[in-house]
Design a protein around this nucleic acid. Structure first.
Lengths: 107, 107
DNA sequence: CATCGATGTATCCATAATGGATATAATGCT
DNA sequence: AGCATTATATCCATTATGGATACATCGATG
């Protein structure tokens, strides 16, 4: 049996989360990379292989869709399903941060 | 050139973060798996390969160390460096959650 | 006391995720 | 004209990870 991808299970890697987050507003691939780098102060930089592979897989999983692309740019946007998956993934990370905060201030 | 591992860069995967978090108090491998499963309500389950490979690599990177192990159990604990890396990783996720919260309530 | 499930560590193997290099093309600036 | 930047995409190698498997020990239950 092939192992399930994080894109089909909806239990995304940080990369997937950053990309979905970028696509709350329509953006093309390159702009997503810039947005992530800027909003993380350069802490998170997505390489081209990661970025474009992620876009392909998110599209295949119907979490994002291509809208109004031009010759030189492919513009994507979150689908309803993508929004739900994003919310779930943020929730899990919120709980992680909450747990960590509790445990770390305890000692 | 070999690509840098997340353990040497200190930019950990969720798996690494969950394991470090578990080791704020001394625990052995199996107990770490249980702790993560319990505190995430079963949302995060680390397979044995992931768990023991992660423990080996965190040890090699001096982020955790083995303390007072018995015949049947190997007990680990965070090092000072591990604590710092954990804090950095939680900070990044806290910013991610904050950013997501802002962006998602906007639309 | 034998058996079975849970505990506990570890590795093998295959697949998924990812970074860096590379390729190609258009656009903008000087 | 020339060069950096924008923009998409793939190749290749490496890292990360899950499932299966292999052992050994321990505790409960019949």
């Amino acid at each position: 049996m092939g192992r399930a991808s994080t894109f089909t299970t909806g239990d995304l890697t940080d990369t997937g989360v950053y990309v979905l987050l970028s696509l709350l507003e329509p953006r093309h691939g390159y702009a997503i990379g810039q947005f992530v780098a800027e909003t993380t102060d350069g802490a998170v930089v997505l390489g081209p292989a990661t970025l474009y592979t992620t876009l392909r897989k998110l599209t295949e999983a119907h979490l994002i869709e291509e809208i109004g692309s031009s010759d030189t740019r492919r513009v994507y946007h979150l689908t309803r399903g993508g929004r739900e998956v994003l919310e779930r993934n943020i929730d899990r990370r919120r709980r992680l941060v909450g747990l960590a905060t509790t445990l770390m201030e305890a000692r």
